[in-house]
Design a protein around this nucleic acid. Structure first.
Length: 771
DNA sequence: GCAAGGTC
């Protein structure tokens, strides 16, 4: 019998179906399914799927007690492999016992080669004769053509490639465990509170921390924008002063004040441009698009996994952005022909030929993500449906046409000042028809000719200030990680989640805690190698050398151990400095804001020595005795906000299904509302049978169109007025004598803007990653 | 109880 081992059950099942001449009998052992069949030549075969890695590298048990082992000892400690999926291992061994040949059919990438070697070792342990009859099937899609091709062109397992993967495993564990224990022991953060360090997570944290530093160093500068509302032929449109940003208020005001009807058109320009259809989805672009729809990266991947397991979409963990030859695109469309997208699909199917877009990344692992099933809307939950629809729409978009956009520009001279009105509209929607997510509304300008006169019906002057670079959203962060080669398609979302779980970051967009900032800083200073993407870059090079047999795994790991020994020496010498730096961050994280009672001191989280319970108290004690109770579970994060009702600082409690924002004053009237809301949510979740805490993730991708600027958010009395009656307070009309109104015009203009921009910002409580 | 990498 021929034994075929794949990386996952789904692949074993599909391969059996494709290769069988006369049907497949499925059976299982210890709940692990396997598939028996005779191929077209009559060879009896059995296919079984692993669950990814089924063994794990680890230290022997005598190194497991953190307090009893110097972290330094881990550097040269022996490594052992332990079985992590015992039932799978036993099933593989049971099937290997009866096999006379073995085909490794794990994924076509480096990690697949390593998983294949692990499976081979297990099989040979059980049945030594197999070692002479091992072949490797390499396929990049689970399609009949591709599988048949791979199985009629069997290859050999590349041991050097698998060993390159092992080198990575060993180095990650040795560095990660040694440094994780070092920082945890140095700061006394043991048990569930431990602080972690790793080749991927630490440089990722550094990226986040560096952006935060830029934000803190940013000095915002005021500027003024002068805008007019114009009218021609009954159609209203707006124009901006050509200068766009005035750095001089007096000059802006002077320009504003002299503006009067009419304006004269000095130039009209029209251009059209092609907007290319998007590339097929790989994991990175899919998660990025999903985070724009309000999903956390981890939630998007979990739902994608569900959709894949239900047969609705193809394998969701892929780097590939080019549909392989073996994928029949027309057939894939036909799957959708009778479903919810029938009309749009029919339109594409009516074409003589289909031309798909191609992305930059072409890999051998899997096809890009595309729909493979056609569930009805009601079959899926709303959150599942919206991601399925995203995949379908992207797929259709990649088979559609480029869009054509028209841009219009009208230059207008108003009392000697140059103004510019810009418009745009879609001439030919093409792919935008199928994929409306990023589509902007048309902004039409009236038909004008040079020399035409236009009415100035309104004018505004807005005071704004330049804004620091935005924090990263999870989608942007994943793209950034990919750019730096940090993590893989299958792990990036989990790495980010890990930073949340460790308390290094919180919020959405991703904001570092003070502890996270200091951890990044300490490691950058005392162990720079682990804090930079360079370590990964060099490891990648070494892995290539191993797979080409220019270096051995042992050589690479030995050099890495030497480097770690040096890094460790530096950390040990500066143990105190490292610990106190991280403590500084931890201490800063406890400060929740100014004390509402004394106003001179700050309030912070304290743990009572007597009762071991935590509470909030004023730093001015005993002069000020202000205290607040705190929930005893979950991490407490200061929000920097004050409750408008009770005047006490608001805090965020993490650790439940979703972050919980509350004001410290237990008698605040908002408490009743919270209680009611929580109760309503709880009963809703109970009714749905699942509350995954992701519903709060309503954040949108931060818009970058404003090129780093948005309205100043100074809160003045005018803000409230404007927010309540925008129509009245919004603008100063050009007809009124402007002189006395200048200040008002500026303030209210700002306030209106502030209100508006606020509405498009991410929901402050949308902590997708923390749920 | 450590990492990062698979997959459920």
């Amino acid at each position: 019998m021929r034994l075929i081992i794949t990386e996952k059950n789904d692949a074993a099942k599909k391969i059996a179906g494709i290769l069988s001449g006369n049907g497949v009998r499925s059976d299982s052992y210890l709940k692990v399914p396997y598939y028996m069949f005779d191929d077209v030549e009559g060879t009896p075969s059995v296919a079984v799927g692993l669950k990814g890695h089924v063994v794990q590298v680890d230290f022997p048990p005598e190194f497991s007690e953190w307090r009893k082992v110097e972290p330094r000892e881990l550097i040269d400690a022996p490594l052992v492999k332990t079985e992590t999926a015992k039932s799978v291992v036993r099933t593989v061994k049971k099937l290997a016992a009866d096999a006379d040949s073995l085909i490794i059919a794990t994924d076509f990438d480096r990690e697949g080669e390593l998983i294949g070697l692990e499976a081979l070792n297990l099989a040979v342990e059980e049945n030594g004769r197999l070692v002479r009859f091992v072949r490797r099937a390499r396929y990049s899609a689970l399609t009949p053509g591709e599988i048949k091709r791979a199985f009629s062109n069997l290859d050999h397992l590349s041991e050097p490639l698998a060993l390159a993967g092992e080198a990575r495993q060993d180095i990650d564990l040795i560095w990660g465990a040694t440094l994780t224990r070092f920082v945890s022991l140095a700061t006394g953060r043991l048990g569930s509170q431990f602080l972690s360090v790793g080749r991927v997570q630490t440089p990722t944290l550094v990226l986040i921390a560096e952006r935060e530093k830029e934000r803190r160093a940013f000095v915002s500068e005021p500027f003024w924008v002068v805008k007019v509302d114009l009218e021609a032929g009954g159609q209203r449109f707006s124009a901006l002063h050509k200068e766009e940003r005035f750095s001089d208020e007096a000059r802006a005001t002077a320009v504003f004040e002299k503006l009067a009807s009419p304006g004269k058109v000095t130039a009209v320009k029209q251009t059209s441009r092609k907007v290319q259809k998007p590339a097929p989805f790989n994991t990175t672009s899919f998660t990025s698009a999903a985070t724009s729809l309000g999903y956390s990266a981890a939630a998007a991947m979990r739902i994608a996994e569900d959709l894949y397991m239900s047969g609705h979409i193809s394998y969701p963990r892929t780097d590939n952005t080019v549909y392989p030859q073996s994928l029949d695109l027309r057939e894939a469309l036909e799957v959708l022909a009778n479903g919810e997208f029938a009309r749009e699909v029919a339109q594409l199917l009516s074409r003589d030929s289909l031309h798909a877009s191609r992305g930059d990344k072409r890999t051998t692992d899997h096809p890009p993500i595309y729909p493979t099933g056609s569930p009805r809307r009601g079959e899926l939950g709303d959150r599942e449906w919206r991601l399925y629809e995203l995949v379908v729409r992207r797929f259709m978009a990649t088979l559609s046409d480029d869009a054509v956009m028209e841009s219009n520009r009208v230059d207008v001279n108003i009392t000697g000042e140059p103004f510019v009105a810009r418009g745009n509209r879609v001439l030919s929607a093409g792919w935008l028809e199928h994929y409306p997510y990023s589509r902007q509304k048309d902004l039409e300008l009236p038909l004008l000719n040079e020399g035409d006169l236009v009415d100035v019906v309104d004018k505004q002057i807005d005071a704004r200030e330049t804004q620091p670079p935005a924090r990263y959203g999870q989608g942007t962060l994943i793209e950034l990680m990919e750019k730096h080669n940090l993590g893989t398609k299958a792990t990036r979302h989990a790495i980010i989640q890990n930073l949340y779980d460790r308390g290094y970051v919180h919020g959405n967009p991703v904001e570092p805690t003070e502890m996270g900032m200091k951890m990044a800083e300490a490691l950058q200073e005392y162990a720079p190698r682990i804090a930079s993407p360079e370590m990964t870059a060099e490891l990648e090079k070494d892995m290539d050398l191993i797979s080409e047999r220019d270096l051995t795994k042992e050589q690479v790991v030995r050099i890495s151990r030497d480097l770690l020994r040096q890094a460790y020496g530096m950390l040990e010498t500066n143990r105190q400095a490292v610990a106190s730096k991280i403590y500084e961050g931890i201490t800063d994280d406890r400060i929740l804001g100014d004390c509402p009672k004394c106003g001179t001191h700050r309030i912070r989280i304290i743990r009572s020595k007597a009762t071991k319970k935590r509470f909030v108290g004023c730093e001015g004690y005993p002069d000020c005795d202000q205290t607040y109770p705190l929930p005893q579970r979950g991490d407490v994060i200061g929000t920097g906000e004050i409750c408008p009702q009770c005047g006490s600082p608001k805090v965020k409690i993490l650790g439940g299904r979703r972050p919980w924002i509350l004001c410290l004053d237990p008698h605040c009237p908002t408490k009743a509302e919270y209680a009611a809301k929580r109760a309503a949510r709880a009963s809703k979740a109970a009714a749905a049978g699942e509350g995954d805490g992701e519903a709060a993730t309503t954040a949108k991708k931060t818009g970058t169109k404003a090129a780093g600027t948005k309205a100043a958010t100074t809160k003045t009395a005018a803000t409230k007025t404007a927010a309540k009656k925008p129509a009245a307070a919004k603008k100063t009309t050009a007809k009124k004598p402007a002189a006395a109104k200048t200040t008002t015009a500026r303030k209210t203009g700002t306030a209106t803007r502030a209100t508006r921009s606020k509405a498009t910002e991410p929901a402050p409580s949308g902590d997708g990653g923390e749920a």
